[in-house]
Amino acid sequence: MHNPRPGLPEFDYVRPASLSEASRFLAEHQGEARPFMGGTDTFVRMRDGFWKEKYIVDVKRLDGMGDITFDPSTGLTIGAAVNMNRVIDSPEVQEHYPLLAEAAKTVASFQLRSRATIVGNICNASPAGDTIGACIVMGGVLKVHGLDGEREVPLTGFFVGPGKTVLKPGDIVTAIRFPVLPQGHAGRYIKLGRNALSDLAIVGVTAFAYPDDTPSGYRFKLALASVAPVPLVPEKAEEILTGKPITDETIAEAAQAAMDACNPIDDVRGSARYRKYMVRNLTRRAVTDVLNRLQ
């Protein structure tokens, strides 16, 4: 019986004055300090007793963390502390990266999205993270401040397991950067929850494509949520959609390949059997929707 406490456990709230100070503090208190942004996951896990940090490090007011900027030549940068509602409302996101807004809209409730962040969603590394797929297929790169200063970390290979990433002690993700997307791109995120809105994903399918010089005429990217220990990219399905002319059969074949690629578990939200079928059916639907949006 897992019985969470009524409130949060005792800890110290720390607000460093700079990123360097924050990184130093986190490294010095390795295993007992944790940075937080919106806290929507952090405080739930602390109340649950899964996380027992002595220090909770508020980094969201540090340099650039709250900014969202777009440059037509370099792309979009979303600061780690920018909440999801701001991302959804951003005219630049809506115009140039609508898939991100579409995915973010499916996260929990409006009041949760006032606090939840894209970077937080990524750092939590939940296999069910709704915005992670969009970030992967659009080539998102994390800006990380560590003990040795700034560096960039691609999302490929970032996720190691549920809740586990390649981040090191002292690392603070300060932003996520997206390249300028190819002309004519289109995307779709379909989330299947138990309720119409607000639930966690039983299965989430992200599909993204843009015109390219390929046998199908498109380059396709896919990502699947809640069907593997980490967000899953079904590469074979992507190849099928890119490498063959698009017909109903091609789509069905790709959907089947996506289904075959995933390895979900049985849990209270859904059985592995159901999830696999849903990956197939929703991949088919997402790809079809993307094709409609491409035209």
């Binding site: 806290g39 405080f43 508020d58 009041q111 606090r115």
Partner: peptide, 8 residues
């Protein structure tokens, strides 16, 4: 609007 139970 925020859930005040998740704000310090």
């Amino acid at each position: 609007p925020v859930n005040s139970c998740l704000v310090l």
